[in-house]
Design a protein around this nucleic acid. Sequence first.
DNA 1: ATCCTCCCCTAC
DNA 2: TAAGGTAGGGGAGGAT
Length: 517
Amino acid sequence: MTSRNDEDDNGFAEWGGYMAAKKAKLVEQYEQQASSSKKQSDILTGVAIYVNGYTSPSAEELKILMSAHGGVYHTYQMPKTTHIVASILPNAKVKQLGSVPIVKATWISDSIAAGALLDHRKYLLYTGHDDKQPKLDCVRPKTLTAADPGFLSEFYNNSRLHLISTLGAEYKQLVNQLREKSNGVYPGRERLRTLPRGLAPSERVVMHIDMDCFFVSVGLRSRPQLRGRPVAVTHGRGTPINRPQASVECENELVKKYFPNENFEDVDSHGSMAEVASCSYEARQCGVRNGMLLGNALKICSDLKTIPYDFEGYREVSTALYKTIAEYTLDIEAVSCDEMYVDVTPILAAANITVEDWATHIRKEVIAVTGCPCSAGFGANRLQARLANKRAKPAGQFYLRPDDVETYMAQVSLSDLPGVGSATVAKLTKMGLHKCGDLQTVSRGQIQAELGNKIGQTVADLANGIDHKPLNFHHERKSVSADVNYGIRFKDKTEASNFLQSLSAEVCARLKDVGMR
DNA sequence: ATCCTCCCCTAC
DNA sequence: TAAGGTAGGGGAGGAT
Ligand SMILES: Nc1ccn([C@H]2C[C@H](O)[C@@H](COP(=O)(O)OP(=O)(O)OP(=O)(O)O)O2)c(=O)n1
Ligand SMILES: [Mg+2]
Ligand SMILES: [Mg+2]
């Protein structure tokens, strides 16, 4: 579901008409909500809730009550969330949510009925110290499915991919804002005065800086005993439900049949289906990779230790990283929550320092401020900076000097070029090409015939260390979308359309958030 | 040529 | 149990 009308008419006229009707209803609902949310009191001022799962009153009702009484409703947990509202939470989950108090929904409705904010401690769902299961305050189904109203927020609260997408957009926005209100003064540069001087390079220098195994590094801050060991961040704990052997074999067979050229990981009946979001460099030595299924990672690295996600921690570290760099320059292109390109030429020139001294300084500062290691690569363009960083990792730095580019590039694997993924690698392999240097043996026309005009040209350039794409310091988003490919199994058309309606509402809310409509 | 629409590919 | 999102670049093929 997107801001464009791509849900209209997929060949089903009836469907298109139905969606149009639904959309009209949605608009109506929004207007109703806006009008019914006229202020009735201020008793909930300062309260910001996030609702987890089923409650009574429902999440939908709480949303309206909150805004009617001066409170704030968060669709998912945020730093400013003051209370989590829930009916039941497993102990493991309670731990994970941290120090935010978890209260029953009746705290809100009772407070409104009483005309004053009641002591939330009387409504705590979980009293903290005993191991007793929390009490139910309403009936709740066993598992949330995509047809349930709470499904979307529950999913978003656990989706790492949703998180990193959201964070990426936030930091692009942050850079925009910092640049708009900048007064051109960079206080961090004062701190460079103690470095040796008189040696700044005359050419342009781009830095690519990226946190080392980001999620793992954040997790290791509070688990120093795991440093130096193979560690992975994942939801799974290595003990999956047992799928019937037959179903697993059937899946592997079908995958091979339909994707004969792909080398997909086999799933096995004992393996956890949870994905490894990030793994330590010790785990990588055994062949573990980000994005792998935990079950398969455990097969090649049996002493892999798993640690849970820490979404708030990632947010804190990312913010600290961006704030730190922004003290030196705002010539920053945000790439993601753990990564950015920076034009450091003016920094080096102003302080008259070498790339190496700057790199050592900034890496030290990032680790001091975040508690997490990062690496930095430098070169004359973004490609060179990025390849340099790949070589620098972990916890290192590398400057790919202009004089060394030609020699260096020849031995770089084509698969290491940005934009060259598995499909492109397959095509290049079929042509007998593996290293950037191999491209010298074929004409540009031949490459373009295989890869297409544009990509062919770009790859040919990249293989020679050439990258014409400038750093983009100001990001404008061109589209807003929401889609879910997890847990979608509808019983009937009504369930499906209800879900589509929640997704539409989500896109709507995001558009409003971005200031459109 | 330039567009539009429906994909595929890539990256984090 | 597990949480397979999101945005951008660009190609193929047909309409203009
Ligand atoms: N398939 C992936 C890839 C990445 N990430 C998340 C977790 C990573 O920690 C974070 C940053 O991605 P990077 O590509 O920078 O990978 P790492 O930081 O983990 O490792 P590296 O040291 O190679 O940068 O994004 C993820 O959840 N799933
Ligand atoms: Mg990283
Ligand atoms: Mg990264």
